[in-house]
Design a protein around this nucleic acid. Sequence first.
RNA 1: GAACCAGUAGCUCAGCUGGAUAGAGCAUCUGCCUUCUAAGCAGAGGGUCGCAGGUUCGAGUCCUGCCUGGUUCACCA
Length: 660
Amino acid sequence: MYRTLKQALLDRIADVLRTRYDLTGIHIATEQPPTLALGELATPIAFELAKRLRKAPRAIAQELATELGTIDGVASVEVAGAGYFNIRFDRAATVRRVAAGEHFDLRGEGLRLIEHTSINPNKAAHVGHLRNAILGDTFGRLLRPDDFKTGYPVAVQNYIDNTGVQVADVVVALLHMEGKSPAEVDALLPELKARGERVDYYLWDLYARVSQWYEADPAQKDARKAVRLQTLHELEEGSNETARIADVLSTAVLHRHLATMQRLGIEYDFLPRESEILHAHFWESARALMIERRVLYEETAGKNKGCWVMRRPGAEDLAEGAPDEDAKVIVRSNGTVTYVGKDIAYHLWKFGLLPDRDFGYKPFHRYPDHTCWISTLQGEAEHPHFGRATAIYNVIDSRQNDPQANVVEALRAMGFSDAAVRYTHLNYAMVALTPRCAVDLGYTVNEEDMKKPYLEVSGRKGFGVKADDLLDRLIAAAKQQVDTRHPEDDDDQRLQTATEIAVGALRFFMLKYTRNTVIAFDFRDALSFEGETGPYVQYAAVRAANILRKAALAPATAIADLASVSVAGHVQDDGVWALWLELSRVTTVLEAAIAAAEPAMVARYAFQLAQEFNNFYHRNHVLTEGDPARRALLLATSAVALRELTRVLGWLGISVPQSM
RNA sequence: GAACCAGUAGCUCAGCUGGAUAGAGCAUCUGCCUUCUAAGCAGAGGGUCGCAGGUUCGAGUCCUGCCUGGUUCACCA
């Protein structure tokens, strides 16, 4: 509703500026006044116009006020301070419209392709991967159609680099470092299962060991690196025993990753794999197109002689004939393509710009209400389509800013400027560990590192907090509380509640920081259930639900009952009105969060909403309220607060437990 | 050397396209459980918004320079 009223005001002011002053195309800034006493909406437009109109700001504001006329939903307009133009809402009318769920709809045509998670399938997921997956999943929920908005068509991809060095490393570890035969490796998965061990945890340690093994013996170093390179080539080549083993391992780990993410309510539609990008020859098609469009050219001089290269974004103009020494190599002098080259091909496919190439598709994993597909060479005849996106969002670490910029630059240079503009690198800063946290986990930290604010997580070093371990600890901590608070519930119910709280805590923790803030992970902060946390917001919703339950009133009934009550007299009191005003801002916040691709804005709003509700809760005792009209209003307020808290938490992927 | 990000309360962070008295959480201190659950609420203390200039009626926000911290910048993959 806030969005609706703001738009109405902007339209009216634009009208007045045009008819009264003959001004058009002026940007009209709006803001929320510092206190409710000054109104609900304001604009400093009079200051902007002062110089242009050669008039005092206050006089301009005054003229605007008298010429504005009436606006539906606005009670009064007044000039304050040196020329602020303040608007007061018709509180009773706004309450009714918010309660009725009236709001501006958000919608758009064309597929939004979101790619997130993308963990190398050679080890367990860690906290850094959680940030990625939670950000991507939440952004998808903000865009996706639901009962609040028409939304945008969304598909979620999880890109799987199953032929990269990281997978090669664990294959090397088993076949060469440990000297297992292929048959022994085949037997490994059943053995682990029999022992109750997890393949992703097993490989976590193995991966850390093999990384050291390469360097351990100076005499063997070159030979071991050669084995690694050979293994990598065999993976890329495919159709050989090494590739088969790699596929068995990476697929097993992939299943683990999907299971880990499913614990957090994160699901995927499609898993495009590097192996198919290679074997379906995406690159060959892209290369032809890049050469045709004069983006890719052969360097004939300088350090990159013999390579096929591309100009970097923002490169300076060069002297005629001089080699561009700063150019990005796409095809090496030995004829092999670099990662950026393959990535360009893949992104052409995403936008439906890659001629005559597509993945094959086959089902991989079944979720309660949909199927997750995976790429293959020969797929099913009937399958959904995932390319041909209108806009794409790649959830990737900020450390990949440069490579991502290269891909965008390639699209732009090829003349696909529309695709380049609709390519969003949804970047975010890394999750690191505080030195203290690292020590607590049993890692040895040297004196120099102890002084740093945070230490980078490294899968290669086996340095990090595994996602499932963190979630298990959160569940255990929540369970302890639930056990003492709700002895009347059975154990299954208490575990269910504890799990919902743990997921709420974890997801909120990863979402409350804006994207470019480095999260220095510490168990003390992550395990907190008080203050600015997911459980705080969940608790507010549970309290609202409890009021309605004790009143034996369905939320929908409480809201419907508002119709027969006079609310005007009760919302002059800011204590109740402040909550309704906050509730009215849902669309405003959602729209801003989507535009900025910043889920933290929604998380912060959820917290503010919960804070405002707790305020209301302590100032008004609903069930003992003697005035029937006021009681009805308070009940409806609780019901709408519950509805909106549940909705906003849902966008964050957080559920409302039945009790806390 | 270059590019990008950051520097706001003791700590961790918000602060949307420049607007009214710079806000939260944690921590510290003081109150509030016989009332819809205290995972909560109320209150207190705590700030030269890294430094110096500039633009503007108005700057935490924009521009320039500097300082500090972080990340990135291979024919590796």
